[in-house]
Amino acid sequence: MAILLMKKINKLINNVKRTMFTSSLDTFISLFITSILFVCTVKLSKWFFLKANWTVVEENIPLFLFGVFPADQRWRPSLWLIILISLVVLTLFTPSWSFFRKLLPFAWIAVIPIGIALLAGGIGLSPVASRYWGGLTLTIFLMMSSLFLAFPFGIILAFGRQSKLQLIKYFCSIYIETLRAIPLISILFFGQLLIPLFLPVEIEINRVLRSIIAFTLFVSAYIAEDIRGGLQAIPKSQIEAAKSLGFNTFQITRFILLPQVLQIALPALTNQAVGLLQNTSLMSILGLVELLGISRSLLANPKFIGQYMEVYVWLAAIYWFICTIMALVAQNIERKTTLVKLI
């Protein structure tokens, strides 16, 4: 037993020697980095365990999760978050052969109207105006509904850009290039300030919807480019083969191009989703109390004044956690849909 342990330690030491201390330069770099890491870790854990005052987080968990949603109705956003979490778990752990798996995409689509129904109320539930939505719930809602709308829109734009009809082609190209040339923040301003000006007075679109529209307009241009990248990876000869079997353009798109394009573009699309999640925090400066917004108003409370570090570290942890889950789900989808590597 002891000999075995000795052997293992020996092996480890050898390994370290080989990978970190082969030359004097290597030794210097290794020591330098290790000492920096050591100092950082010590300082951070000192702050984390001794100096930081976590009451600001502990006391306000409901605010972080639901914003200023009426307290007696909090079960509604909670229920929605629970549905989402169960969907994530189901997606990650159902085997690819299961019949249930075929229903998952529909469940993911259905989760958005369910979210609207639960948050807004109306049918049997007391209505809650969108200005009371907030916190993590609103962040996730913004991300998911923008993605849900931007996805088909982006696909249409990408195929429109390849269209033989010049008018459609130029419209899509100009749209994509323009939207990619404008910073997101100005599109969001446009959504909040200008969309109401263009609409007749009697039509009032609420802030949440306006920001979803703005995000959709923005992200769909990027999604279109990702899809186009996938389209270019498919050899023209495959399209010729499909044509010579008598398929029309729609059938070629539906059965030959889209399934391959989505598989090729999935990593890029995941990137867009993660980016979108983080970009929703921009709405905090445009009057939505999503995760960052609610934290900012918390910090304005005299009781918690000066506790920036705790709140922002906590926020970073939440964003990191959600991004990780998204990455996991994407990896899982990639693994289970990739029957064969296309390229």
Binding site: P235, S237, Q238, A241, I256, P259
Partner: peptide
């Protein structure tokens, strides 16, 4: 095309 088949040099099967 519905009534005429074609076989290509590069096979052109649908990989997915």
């Amino acid at each position: 095309r519905k009534r005429v088949g074609m076989v290509f040099q590069q096979f052109n099967l649908f990989p997915h």
